[in-house]
Write a protein that binds this DNA or RNA. Structure first.
Lengths: 121, 121
DNA sequence: ACAACATACAACTGATTGGTTGTACGTTGG
DNA sequence: CCAACGTACAACCAATCAGTTGTATGTTGT
């Protein structure tokens, strides 16, 4: 399995990088909707909307449950919070409260240039 | 210019949807780095890294200032917070604290189906 | 039973993306 | 002065993406 944290982040941000998908996410966060009910709101084919839902689902931002012939989608607020957490990490780096930056960014080549005045070691 | 809120959101999330760009953003949030200093950290050409920085810059997540022959990039924490705010909106929708959802999602076709039991009108 | 509906998925297309190489131009150090 | 450096940008390529149409499969209401 390839699913490390970076893959998850890729999936999250990619899923959110489309306005139709963001709109779908808003609707399903507000309440359950079948895929075809969602599709009626957009000027595109049912198949296109279905694919958007699939992208959101693969990212974990949406889950589906089957009810009869319908597939009801709902937004996963926990996943939204995970994305918020990723951004909070960035903000923490900016705040400089983490001076273990070298550990976090560890890739073995960190010390090739020191244009950055690494405060305290 | 076409830059409405959705365009900005597209740019934000697209910029964040690549691990190299996220890594660059982490570095420049921690401190200023020239483009070539950044490029040394990645197994790709200088031009590729330059393009990644350009994507981050167009999204407003990074700004550059020229110093001599170098271009120093720094992370814009305000933009990171803007993204957080977008996610907070989603969370608010989920919380149901906004019952003007129809206004927020206003597109004229909202009432085609009411599979959603819109609580209190 | 069966027509209409909801979904799933494959195949195709044009546009965008992430990478490359090559070229050009300003800046700097010796 | 001029060679090396840092940047910018164009042209190209393979892969992915967002959309389409078409087909297949299960579900429902009458």
């Amino acid at each position: 399995m390839i699913d490390d944290a970076e893959d998850r982040a890729d999936a999250f941000f990619h899923a959110l990088a489309d306005r139709t998908r963001r709109d779908i996410l808003r609707r399903v966060l507000a309440g359950e909707h079948s895929v075809s009910a969602l599709a009626r709101h957009y000027p595109m084919s049912f198949a296109a909307v279905q694919k958007h839902v699939a992208v959101l689902e693969r990212a974990g931002l949406v889950s589906k449950r089957r009810q009869g012939r319908e597939q009801l989608a709902s937004g996963e607020v926990g996943a939204v919070r995970s994305v918020t957490a990723l951004l909070a990490e960035l903000e923490e780096i900016w705040r400089g409260r983490i001076d273990r930056i070298d550990d976090l960014l560890a890739d073995g080549t960190t010390e090739t240039t020191d244009t950055t005045p690494k405060k305290e070691h």
